[in-house]
Every structure is written in structure tokens, then in C-alpha cells.
Design a binder for these strands. Structure first.
Lengths: 361, 361
DNA sequence: CGCCCGACCCGAAACGTTTTGATTGACGCA
DNA sequence: TGCGTCAATCAAAACGTTTCGGGTCGGGCG
């Protein structure tokens, strides 16, 4: 409708208008300016749908977020907030799909891909063997992941070095004199959980200290509370605890306070994410910050590069996290410094993912 | 491509395939089954882009979220999480646009609307005179708002009765014997801020109690902290404080603890939203819950109804909030119960929105 | 003078649907 | 037999772009 409108009102063909506006060199500059002027006059906006039909591209990027109330958290929120504007600047829309985990999630990906709804995808919270990544790789759809996964095939990803981050956090706690450092982790299906656990374990091994107990569950406040309570109920509770996310740390803080203990003195706690709230917990939370804005920017760059035909092979980066020291950790309480080593119970894996079970450390 | 593929492989016309699949009655049932079978065999998926071009609908609905770090909060998160799957069930996509406030926000709306990118919109956090709503009304684009606005024209909206909610909360505090009840509000451009303030004021008026001071700023943890600190620095600080959101309440809690006071005993605090964290603050936060899931469901219904041609006029509802009593409030401290009344200072409005200034109560 | 080339422009096809209006037979009825 | 009716099918147009493969016209060159 619209191209034609300009064309008829100027007495040229639709082709010429299209080519003029697209900047092709084979249109006389006089014509071009007339067309440009008219386009501006009627405030011409190309119809994206027509354009997409013709070009076979949809002009949108998909982001599938977990729809379960617990798991859809501030990290995704920040990601959306950062990614959206960047994509918009590239003329791309961000479409969101909520999907409850498992089969429905796979279906969501299939839906987006097969209906030509998206040109590319952003995949967050990668898992060890990630079916989504396999699907996308098989179909040749461009994507970028936040987080790594275990596959031999090359794919674009950007990740924070969780291993290094937790190694650093553990070393900090060791430096405070803690001898029993526990880990409140996410289920080991998630790669980030594995990396952070590895860092914790590596630092302890390097120091010759036996790892404290490691529990895991979906990283929510509720589970942080539950798991921390379980830790405190032990005969020989740890003096320091690493939490895989701030959300978990908030729950843990609550458990500590409920037990009549004081975080930062009786028990040291370190989180991860640096959510806005971390500044305002009591005490403020020592945590590890990932630069979400910049990550989002880089991920979008990687995705756009692939849309323009770049191979995914070179596109992978791992960035450092930054430790933000606040007041939820500190010197180990003197009474218990370097007391006897406790050995974590080696327990069989639980049946379903969400259960909080003891890791083999 | 695809319709044609079925057509040629079955020796019928594209039209017939289309009509068979669409369920028109004028195709022989034998033909219909053959077509259905073939469609299933090749796993036919209609090309949405083509469909949209033909129908003039885009099959997506838009949600513009504030992209400023502070204002993009958990409420939107919950909204997105709830709305996405519901829309998906209707065959609709949810496209998100982040937009920093002001001019950019208007541009974002214009972009979505004029490029035919969305069939409808969801508008959250309504303002008193909301330019977005005017734009949408003028263009005749279907939309649903979360929150009300001051316009004579009918539009579809669903809101929580913030006035009733804060009246109830204030009455609760009065019942606890508090005589100085302050309000930590959001800027009065937001309708929700006005409603909640009205409820607070109404309850106090009914009880013959003078309103405590009312401060306002963007509802973030940081501002909650700042404003609460300001309250505590007064000669005659209030014994109870209503916070317009849980985020603010979290900041306020921090300010209270920093001042060496104990929330729930020295100072009573009530929030709003019932974020997941409200259960895990210290003390757990008494707050008002809005049923986001159900609201999302209803808003989607309202939107879909309009897409199917229903007028917006009848579509508006105001639901009650539910008070969740936890432990951040309680009886007024005996030493100060019904002490002399303080009169809020009547100060002129500040220059820019984000400043924390004293309301004329 | 005749030809060729470059500059400029355009018609038509294509992307995959849906929908309109027409066509084809078969059948019943007068 | 002739006509109307009904069921079943289809061709073509349309949605708004982009792009392919020409086409026309003038001017420069041999």
C-alpha cells in the first residue's frame, strides 16, 4: 500500500521507490530526493510483515524464559532490560516465551523456530547436556548462550567464570580463618552450579582443607532458608557458607537470624549476582557481581554477527566476576577456628531435581 | 510453499487445502481427511508471516517495560512470567520493548503501533495523565492497562484497589495504637501512588488522627532507605510507616536496622506487593498481596476480547488486595503511644520527579 | 551514421496465505 | 429434455515488499 502510494503520487514505479529508499545506486539523485521527501512527508514506514515474508527473516529474537514462579528471577529481568534496547537499535524485536520446564520448554523452542518466528535466540541458564542447544545446532539457527554446556560442537557463548569467582570467594573465607566452608548450590544439571562448585572445591583442595557439606536445590529464597536450616541443625555446622545466588543467600540469612545467630559474625555468607537487594539485607551481602549490561551488549553483538553470516566458532568468551565485599562475612568466630575436620556424608543422589540433597563433594 | 506442497502432492488446489485445514464446511469429508493426513505427515506449520501479511494482523502483543534499572522491578517480572504463557495459548507472541522513560517511551509505543508490529498492548504502571493511553486511544489500538488513569474516554483496565488496601493497612496500624503513621510513597504522577495515599489519608481522617509525614520517590530499595532515614532523623519520628512497595520497605527495613531500632517493635512497617522476598526479610514483612497470576489471566482475556471486536467500554475491574500479616508491624511502643500530634510540614512541590519531597498531606 | 554502453527506470514474479467469486458435475423435479 | 440446486472444487487476486531481468533513451565513439 504505502510504497505504491509514494509511487503513484510521484508518477514513478514501485520498484524505483523501493530502490531509492534502499539506497541502490541506479536511481537518479533528483528522483531519489523527490522520493525521500515524499516518504518523509507521508511518514512512510515499511511494513515489516511484508518485508519479512519477502526476505524470509522475521526480524525478531527469541528468549525463552522459565515460567515457573521460582526460577524466573531478577537475573532474567536484568537481561531483558539490557537486551531489549540493544536489539531495538538493530531493528530487531525481542519476543519472550515463558515455558514451564521439560517437554514444554522444548516445544516452545520448536514453536519459535519452526514457525519462522525468530531469526535467532538467546539461551540462558545452560544445562550440562542441553537439548535446546542440540536442537538449535541441528537446525542451524543462530543463537548465543549465557553460560556454557558440554558439547563438542562450536556455539556462541558468553559466560562468567564461576569457577574463578567461587575460588576467589573461598580463598577470601579461608583467609578469614574459616575451616569449614559449606556450599549451598543449585542442582548440578545447571552448568553454573558445576562451575561454582568446582571453584569452591579447588580452593579448598589447594589449601588442604576438607570441603564442608554441599547441598543443592533450585536457587530460591525458600530453598536457601531450608538448606541453611539443615546446615545449622548439624552436629558440627560450618562457619562459612557460599551461596550460589543472592536469592538463596537471602533465604540463608533468614535462617541464620531465625536461629538466633548473626551473619557476618557467627556465620559468614557470600552470595552471587549482586542483586539490588544485596545492599539492603541485614547485614549487607558480600557477593559476586556479573556485569549484566556489558554482557548483554556483547551477546547481542555476537548474535547480530551470526545473523550477518559469521560462524559461531570464534564467538565465545568467559569473563571474570567481581567480588563486592560487604558485611555478611568476616573472621571465623574464635571459638571454632580450625576445629576438627568434618567429612561430608556421601549420599546417593535424590530422585527428583528439586530435592535438596547432599552432593558428593 | 507448504500449502502448495500438500496441494500438488495430493492433486488438489491450494484453496482446497487451505479451506480443509481451516475447517470450512464446503470440502468433502474424504478430501478433508486426506489433506489432514498429508498435513500431519509432512508436519505442516502455516507460515505465520504470510498469514499476518494477508490478514493484516501481527499475532503479537506488546509490553513496553521501563528500562531504567531502578524501575524495572519484580512486579513486571511476575507480569511477564504470567502473561507470556497465557498469550502463547492463544497463539499470540509477547514482544517486549525496554524503553527509558519520557520521549523514548513514547517512541517505543509509536514504533510498535505504526510498524504494525503488535495487534494490542499491555500497559503497566499507569500515570495520571497518560500520554501512552491517549496515543493508543487515538489510534484505536486495543490495549489493557494495569492501573487506572484520569481520562473520560473508556478503556480496558484492571486494577487493584490501592485505596482500600492502604485504608485497611492504616486501620490495622491504628488498631495497634499507632498515632503517627507516615507514608513512603511513589511520585504522584503514578496513579497507584495517589490511590494508596488516598486510602491512608481516608483512614486517618476517619479516625480523627492527623496524617504523619509523607515522602515520596521512585520506589526502589535505595530510596526506601534514604526516606526512612530522613523520617528517623526527625525530632518526632513516626511509630509506623506505610511503604508503597515492598522494595521500598526493604530499604526502609535497612534504615531502621542501621539506626539501631527494631522493626515490628520500635517501628511498624507495612509494604505492598508480597514479593517472594517479603517472607525472608528480618522481620518478615507484613504486606499487601495482589494476585498477579489471576490479574494476568484476566487482562489477557480482556485483550483477546478486544481483538475479537469487543468494545473496551465494559472491560474494567478493580479488585481487592489481601493483607498478609507477618511480623514487621505490631503494637505501638508504649512510651510513645498517642503522644502529641505532629503536623506535617506543608512544603512546596520539588522541581523534578525523582526528588524525595514532602507531600502536602 | 550506426553502434554500444551507461544511466535510469520499470514490469513482473515471488514470498505463503486467505477469500471471493466462479466453475463443474450430479441430481432432482417439472 | 431442460432447468435449478447443491456440493465440491478451483483460479485468481490480494496483502506490501524486494529483486531479477529486461527496456528506453542519449551520448560518445569508431
Amino acid at each position: 500500500m504505502s510504497l505504491r502510494r509514494i509511487a503513484t503520487s510521484l508518477g514513478v514505479s514501485v520498484t524505483t521507490v523501493s530502490r531509492a529508499l534502499a539506497g541502490y545506486p541506479d536511481v537518479a539523485s533528483a528522483t531519489r530526493t523527490r522520493i525521500a521527501a515524499e516518504a518523509r512527508r507521508i511518514d512512510y514506514r515499511p511494513n515489516q510483515v511484508a518485508r519479512r515474508l519477502r526476505s524470509g527473516r522475521s526480524g525478531t529474537i527469541g528468549l525463552v524464559v522459565p515460567a515457573e514462579p521460582g526460577s524466573f528471577d531478577l537475573f532474567f529481568l536484568a537481561l531483558i532490560g539490557a537486551i531489549g534496547p540493544l536489539l531495538a537499535r538493530q531493528g530487531l524485536d525481542l519476543v519472550m516465551m515463558g515455558a514451564p520446564g521439560g517437554a514444554a520448554e522444548a516445544a516452545a523452542y520448536r514453536h519459535l523456530v519452526e514457525q519462522h518466528r525468530v531469526d535467532g535466540l538467546i539461551v540462558a541458564r545452560t544445562r550440562r547436556h542441553d537439548a535446546r542447544i542440540r536442537l538449535l545446532l541441528d537446525r542451524g539457527i543462530p543463537f548465543v548462550t549465557h553460560g556454557r554446556t558440554e558439547t563438542a560442537r562450536p556455539y556462541a557463548h558468553l559466560d562468567i567464570d564461576g569457577e574463578q569467582a567461587f575460588r576467589e570467594a573461598t580463598e577470601r573465607l579461608l583467609g578469614f580463618g574459616h575451616a569449614q566452608i559449606a556450599l549451598l548450590n543449585a542442582p548440578p544439571v545447571y552448568m553454573f552450579a558445576r562451575h561454582r562448585a568446582a571453584g569452591w572445591r579447588a580452593a579448598l583442595a589447594a589449601a588442604g582443607t576438607a570441603p564442608g557439606p554441599a547441598l543443592h536445590a533450585e536457587p530460591t529464597e525458600e530453598n536457601g532458608d531450608r538448606l541453611m536450616s539443615a546446615l545449622l541443625a548439624r552436629r558440627d555446622p560450618p562457619t562459612a557458607v557460599l551461596c550460589v545466588t543472592d536469592r538463596m543467600a537471602v533465604g540463608a540469612l533468614h535462617a541464620i537470624a531465625s536461629a538466633g545467630l548473626r551473619a557476618g559474625r557467627d556465620i559468614s555468607l557470600i552470595g552471587y549476582d549482586d542483586l539490588p537487594i544485596a545492599r539492603y539485607t541485614d547485614p549487607p551481602l558480600t557477593t559476586l557481581e556479573q556485569p549484566i549490561e556489558q554482557m548483554a551488549r556483547r551477546m547481542v553483538e555476537m548474535l547480530v554477527a551470526q545473523l550477518d553470516g559469521a560462524p559461531a566458532a570464534g564467538l565465545n568468551e568467559v569473563w571474570p566476576a567481581r567480588l563486592i565485599a560487604r558485611r555478611s562475612d568476616g573472621p571465623a568466630p574464635p571459638a571454632r577456628t580450625s576445629t576438627l575436620r568434618i567429612t561430608p556424608r556421601a549420599t546417593a543422589k535424590g530422585g527428583h531435581e528439586d530435592a535438596s540433597i547432599v552432593d558428593r563433594a
